[in-house]
Amino acid sequence: MQEAVRTLLLAAVGMTIASCAALPTADKVASFGDAASSSSNAMKEALNANRLVALQTSREREAVAYITHKPYLLRMDDVDKSNLVQAREQVAVLSALNLYAKALVKAADQGTIADLEAASARLGASAGTLAAAAVPTAAPIVGPAFKLTGRLLGIALGNAYAAEIQSIISATDPTVQKIALTMPTSLNAVGLLVEAQVEGYEVQRQILMDAIRRDSKVDRLRLYKEYLVARSDVETLQMQASILKSSAVVFQELAEAHKALANGAPDSSALVKKFAATAAELSELISAVRATQGG
């Protein structure tokens, strides 16, 4: 009898040690959170490129009309407006993902978990809207419904706070996996549209530049400056379209890193580092785009 009790105790201790080893470390959670926040922000910014290119194409067209003494408008016409993409659900998901990521960083750094719970719930709600809009036949996205079980287990393991974070990450993982599966398709579609619109914008910009060049009063320095500005504008929009089209890689790495954290996988550190490196590259790309815009 005593031998049996001793065996059970040793087994329990072994399970406790193994479970504690699987709990996320603060630096690992913070690294993932920073990467998820920066990448979701980059995607959201790129998603706004559609509105930007439609607006700038309209401006270029009407500017050409104005300087060539033709009727012109000081606003977008109905055709311009019809080219605007309605992507409220995608923007909402990216915003919610950013809040969740920041809450992870805060939980790891400041020891506050209430914001993380709220952010997880918001992410589940926004992702559910996206699934309904983009994939009507998809199964409902699972929100953080299993949080209580994980938290009670964590308290029993003697590492309550780390287990709370772990349980929320685990409960949120189905949502993150669904987002990673669904978002690239819709973002790629917007990217292809923006790419086609950029070609139209480039043509309008060239027409305006040609009209300016025909004016003999405009010197070469002015023409040079106009060319640099125009090229920067076109390349900026092309870059944003490219980011949307290549989003699948970012979301795949986000999903892999998040699942590894949720499962306490041995290779979670490597996957988080890989995702962080990709997010850093994306962030640098966005910074370069901003620099060309003077921002």
Rank of each mutant, 00 (worst) to 15 (best):
E3L: 10
A4S: 06
V5A: 11
A12M: 09
A12Q: 04
G14C: 06
T16S: 00
T16C: 06
I17K: 03
A18E: 10
A22H: 12
L23Q: 12
L23M: 12
L23P: 05
D27V: 14
F32G: 03
S39V: 04
S39E: 05
S39N: 01
N41G: 11
N41F: 08
N41A: 09
E45D: 06
A46R: 02
N48H: 04
R51T: 05
V53I: 09
Q56L: 15
E62D: 07
I67W: 09
T68G: 06
T68F: 05
H69L: 14
K70G: 13
Y72A: 13
R75S: 10
M76E: 04
V79R: 06
D80R: 02
K81I: 11
K81R: 10
V85G: 00
A87T: 11
A87N: 15
R88K: 13
R88H: 10
Q90L: 10
Q90V: 05
V91Q: 08
V93G: 03
L94Y: 04
L94E: 00
N98I: 02
Y100G: 00
K102I: 10
A108T: 03
T112G: 07
I113T: 04
D115F: 08
E117M: 09
L123I: 05
S126M: 05
G128P: 13
A131I: 01
A133M: 14
A139Y: 10
A139C: 09
A139S: 15
A139H: 14
P140T: 13
I141F: 02
P144M: 12
P144E: 08
F146L: 15
L148W: 08
T149E: 08
G150F: 07
G154R: 03
A156K: 12
L157T: 10
A160W: 12
A163F: 02
I168C: 04
I169S: 03
S170K: 09
D173G: 04
T175A: 07
T175I: 10
L181W: 03
P184A: 13
T185Y: 10
A189D: 07
V190Q: 10
G191I: 08
G191L: 05
L192M: 14
L193K: 07
E195T: 15
E195S: 14
V198H: 01
V198R: 02
V203C: 03
Q204C: 15
A211E: 08
I212H: 04
I212Y: 07
R220P: 08
R222G: 08
L223M: 13
Y224L: 09
E226I: 09
L228I: 13
R231M: 12
S232R: 13
V234Y: 06
L237Q: 00
Q240E: 12
Q240R: 11
A241D: 00
S246C: 08
S246R: 13
S247M: 01
V249M: 11
V250T: 03
F251L: 14
L254K: 03
E256W: 07
A262N: 01
N263G: 07
G264C: 05
D267P: 00
D267A: 04
V272A: 07
K273A: 15
F275P: 01
F275Q: 00
F275G: 00
F275A: 00
A277D: 14
L282Y: 03
S283N: 11
L285I: 07
L285K: 01
A288K: 13
A291G: 01
A291L: 12
T292D: 12
Q293Y: 06
G295Y: 15
